[in-house]
């Protein structure tokens, strides 16, 4: 290192300001150059003297107390997200409470009465529905012994008679069920209907019967097992 370079580094003698290589080269130069070494000592002395003088500022005794007195009192400030989370929790709590206390009491007796499967022969079925004022007809081809139960169902907003036939299965056919919805033509404007339409695991069939249409949904692929033998 030359003297001109060393003089440039005199202001950077404080630890951490020069990298290791620069510091080493600078130190080696000072070891062999009395002029630069004297200048370095002089700079170091000046730095120390400036630092001492710079720090010689008396601090007023009561300054700390005055600063603390001037700070505004601290108040708990709820952060926006905490407030939002608190509101959400409160709403969830209130909602849960209301929901828990307003659920209808389950009445198993009413349930069993409402869901009871009515069964009987065709005459009984006709009598019951007529008694309730619900237009009804029964597909005469169906075997009455397979009538499982009957009730009413809501179809497109209208209460209609519903018959459930259950075929228990035999050597030729697997067990199957058939729902028969009795649609009065006086209730529904019935247009053209497909006679049969199959879906993945059941089949729809529509039978015209006087003033009614029987909308039938059944499993088993065919209604044949449900029908009386003399109709086959």
């Amino acid at each position: 290192m030359e003297c001109s370079s060393a003089r440039l580094l005199l202001n950077f003698q404080r630890p951490g300001e020069l990298d290791a290589d620069e510091r080493q080269a600078f130190k080696q130069h000072l070891d062999i150059c009395p002029d630069c070494a004297a200048q370095s000592r002089s700079e170091t002395q000046l730095d120390r003297a400036l630092a001492r003088a710079m720090q010689a500022v008396p601090t007023p005794a009561s300054l700390r107390a005055r600063i603390l007195a001037n700070l505004r009192p601290r108040r708990p400030v709820p952060l926006p997200w905490i407030a939002a989370a608190a509101c959400l929790l409160l709403a969830l709590g209130v909602g849960t409470f209301v929901w828990l206390n307003h659920r209808p009491q389950f009445d198993h007796n009413s349930f069993m009465t409402e869901m009871d499967m009515k069964s009987g022969d065709f005459d009984t079925v006709l009598a019951v529905f007529h008694g309730e004022g619900i237009p009804v007809a029964i597909p005469p081809q169906f075997n009455p012994s397979y009538l499982g139960f009957y009730d009413t169902q809501i179809v497109q907003g209208r209460k209609v008679a519903h018959l459930l036939f259950h075929f228990p299965g035999n050597n030729d056919n697997r067990p199957a069920i058939a729902h028969v919805f009795v649609l009065p033509k006086s209730t529904f404007n019935i247009g053209e209907l497909p006679s049969q339409e199959s879906r993945s695991n059941h089949t729809f069939e529509f039978w015209n019967h006087g003033n009614f249409v029987f909308a039938i949904m059944h499993t088993g692929g065919s209604l044949t097992p449900f029908l009386l033998r003399n109709d086959l």
Partner: peptide, 19 residues
């Protein structure tokens, strides 16, 4: 200038007021 001049040693203490 950026480059320091050589000072006479020993350096006197610096008066904080003058600083």
């Amino acid at each position: 200038g950026d480059l320091p001049d050589r000072l006479h040693e020993p350096l006197p203490e610096i008066d904080p007021v003058r600083l």
